[in-house]
Amino acid sequence: MNKYIEELTKYLDREPLKRLLMACEDIRTMRVRGAGKIARYAARTLKETCLNVRCNSSTDYINAVKKIARCLVNTRPTAVSLPNSMRFILNRLFEDYKSGIDDVDTLKDLTAKYSDSFIKNSLDAVKTIAELGSRRIKDGDIIMTHCHSTVAVKILQKAWDSGKHIEVFVRETRPRYQGHITAKALASAGIPVTLIVDSAARYFMKDVDLIVIGADTVAVNGAVINKIGTSELALVAKESRVNVMVGAETYKFDPKTVSGELVKIEERDWREVINEEKLKVIGNIKVRNPAFDVTPPQYIDIIVTERGVIPPQAAFLIIQSEFKISLPHIRDPWE
């Protein structure tokens, strides 16, 4: 991060740089959490930071935009929504720049325009997915979910608001307990909620009709990368012949997986699992804390996107359509 700070001091005064670094820290430490919220927060931060760039030429401005985007992208490696928000904005901005627009103020206005456009599209996508996903829920269904996904919550709330009497099992999702956020949101909407420990999924699966979860990333083969424990839940559901529905905006599909690049799984600080005092009591042991896992496509029945409902095997069609994939190597605009 020190390298980025040094590079950015050329383009940003102290206060805008401080706000950018605080935003990066908000994402890295999960003060801002959830793939969609992270993407929108990053887009808003890019906009506000770029409006404060000081430079003498359009070339300098474009270089500054790349460095700011790179600083944001490097905060968390797994959720593709963040880099895809940057791709959405930068690809459009750079097309305008290459077409001959070289006035710095105009480029700043375009950066703001494309950032606002991404945020609006993201919020609209959630509404559409909630509508489409809720149609797949039947009156009387008992549903299980995992972690906290805005999309999954909105699907369940939409089903409830449309008059379907559902009940929801929410796994607490250790070690950060994001399931508590989901439980609160659903209970506030009036939905009957039962909070369970993560390891109780198989015990209650006999009572469950449907699994509804979100996604941090969808790979080209339809595999879903989501909060650790998702793959185990999907496996238990598969064993019990319970369908798994994933809600995912199209900007959560990873274009770089087309060229065979693997999704990097973030491993977070072990202190999220156990504090140092307790660790000393236990003794000399290793503690690991992967934040995500990979659910194979054969454990997923449908993926609900704002473009429609697809089987996981159709993920490539979404990537091809959204990102205009034509080359085996995808070069990021901030490179």
Score class of each variant (00 low, 15 high):
H329F: 13
K252G: 08
V246P: 09
K264T: 12
S199N: 04
V244C: 08
R271G: 09
F316R: 14
K280E: 14
V224S: 03
V193Y: 08
R288E: 15
N226L: 09
T230H: 01
V193A: 11
E306R: 02
K252S: 10
K256S: 11
I318P: 00
D254W: 00
A315V: 04
T295K: 06
A248C: 13
V281P: 02
G214F: 09
L195A: 09
T230S: 14
P255S: 06
L210S: 04
P296R: 04
Q313D: 06
V304H: 01
V263Q: 10
I285C: 10
I274G: 12
V212W: 05
P255E: 05
F292R: 03
Y203L: 14
P290H: 06
A315Y: 02
D254K: 00
P328K: 11
T230E: 01
V309I: 15
V220W: 08
K324L: 01
G247C: 05
V218E: 02
L262D: 14
K278P: 00
N284I: 04
K280A: 14
A219Y: 00
E276H: 09
E276L: 15
N289P: 03
G283E: 05
A315E: 04
V193W: 03
E306K: 05
M205F: 07
N289H: 07
T217V: 09
F323W: 01
P296G: 08
V220F: 11
V244S: 08
V224N: 01
F292M: 01
A315H: 03
D207L: 13
N243E: 15
I310P: 07
S259D: 07
N275Q: 09
T250C: 12
D269V: 04
V208S: 10
T194V: 13
I228L: 12
V236C: 05
I300T: 05
F253R: 03
V236L: 11
L195M: 15
N275S: 11
R288V: 15
D198V: 04
P311R: 12
P296V: 04
F204L: 13
I274A: 10
I318M: 02
L327P: 00
K278G: 11
A248H: 08
S240M: 13
E277G: 00
V208A: 10
Y299R: 02
M205Y: 03
S231Y: 02
S199E: 05
D293K: 01
I285N: 03
E322D: 08
E266C: 08
V304R: 02
I225L: 14
V197I: 14
I303T: 06
I225F: 03
V220A: 13
L233M: 14
K278N: 15
F323H: 00
P255R: 08
V263A: 09
A291T: 12
W270P: 15
V224T: 07
F323T: 00
R241K: 15
D301H: 10
A237N: 04
L235N: 11
P296Q: 05
V218I: 14
D198E: 06
I211P: 07
R307V: 03
S321N: 10
A200G: 07
P328R: 10
I274Y: 01
L262H: 08
V246L: 05
V258H: 04
A248G: 10
R271S: 13
G260K: 12
L279Q: 12
Y203E: 09
E239V: 09
V258P: 02
V193T: 10
P312F: 09
V242T: 14
S231V: 00
E239C: 01
A248V: 13
I285Q: 02
A234R: 00
T230W: 00
A215Y: 03
L210R: 14
S231G: 08
S326G: 01
